[in-house]
Design a protein around this nucleic acid. Structure first.
Lengths: 123, 123
DNA sequence: GGTGTATATTACCAATAGGTTAATTAACCA
DNA sequence: TGGTTAATTAACCTATTGGTAATATACACC
C-alpha cells in the first residue's frame, strides 16, 4: 500500500464526503477540534459498541480526516486539517452561484411583498 | 409527506454529504452550475443506464440539492443553493483549526529546512 | 507471571447503495 | 389511433455499510 494523501486520487473527495455523511463521525470530528482524544474518550458520548467506534475511526482515517498515534495501549486520534480544507474549497466554488440564487430569492420576496400590498389594498 | 427543507431535520447534513460522496453526482452538480438541464443531458457524459441516472437524481433531490420541474415530457433539473451553502458553512467552522494547523506545518517545514542546511554543511 | 485495561480483529447479520434489464407511464407528433 | 421520445418504476443482483458478540493482542501494574 503506497499511495496516501500525496497522490490526489480521483475521488479522495468521495471518501471525505462519505466519511462526513454520518452524524457519529461528524460528532467525533467536533470532539477532536478540542485536541487529541483516545478511542474511549471518543466513544463515550455515543451509545454504541467499541468495535463500531473502531470502524467509524477507520473510515475517518482512510479519508485522511484523522491520524492515529501510539502512546502505550492508547491510540490517540488527531484531526487533520487538509481534507476539511478540501471540502471548504470545493464548496467555495459555488459561492457565486448561491449568491446569485439568494439575490434572486431576495428579488422574489420583494416582488411578493409588493403583490401582497396590492392585494391588501384591493380588499 | 410534510416536512421538507423548512424543518431542519437532525441530519439533513448527512443526506447532503451522502449525496456529495459520489463523483457522478458531483459531476451532475457541476453541470447544473451552468443552468437547468434535462435528464438526458445530465446522463450523456456518464457511461451508465438511464435508470441509474434517475436514481442519482433522486438522491440529489432528497438531499435538497436539486429540484425538478416539468416541461412537456422533459423534467428539467435545477440546482439549489441552500444545501451547498450549508456545506460551506459547516466546513467554515473549521477554518480556525486548519489555519492553526497550517501554521504548525509552516513552522515544521522551516525547521526541516534548517536541519537540511545543517546536514548539507556536515557533508 | 497473572490480571486488568485499551484497542483491534474476526465472524456474522440486516439494511442500503449502486448498478443492471425489462416494463410502464406520460407527453408529443402525425 | 399508433408510434416515438423522455423518464420513471419494478425486479433483481452484488458490494458496502453499520451494527453486534466473541476473541485476540498489547501494554501497565502488582
Amino acid at each position: 500500500m503506497v499511495q496516501q494523501h500525496n497522490t490526489p486520487s480521483p475521488d479522495r473527495l468521495s471518501a471525505i464526503f462519505g466519511a462526513l455523511a454520518d452524524p457519529t463521525r461528524r460528532a467525533m470530528i467536533a470532539t477532536l477540534l478540542t485536541g487529541e482524544a483516545t478511542v474511549q474518550e471518543l466513544a463515550k458520548p455515543h451509545d454504541m459498541s467499541l468495535p463500531a467506534i473502531s470502524k467509524h475511526l477507520k473510515v475517518l482515517e482512510r479519508a485522511g480526516l484523522i491520524t492515529r498515534g501510539r502512546d502505550a495501549q492508547w491510540r490517540p486520534c488527531r484531526l487533520q486539517a487538509a481534507p476539511l480544507k478540501e471540502v471548504a474549497d470545493w464548496a467555495e466554488h459555488f459561492r457565486r452561484f448561491w449568491n446569485e440564487s439568494f439575490d434572486r430569492l431576495d428579488e422574489y420576496l420583494k416582488e411578493m411583498q409588493k403583490k401582497e400590498k396590492k392585494n391588501a389594498r384591493k380588499k
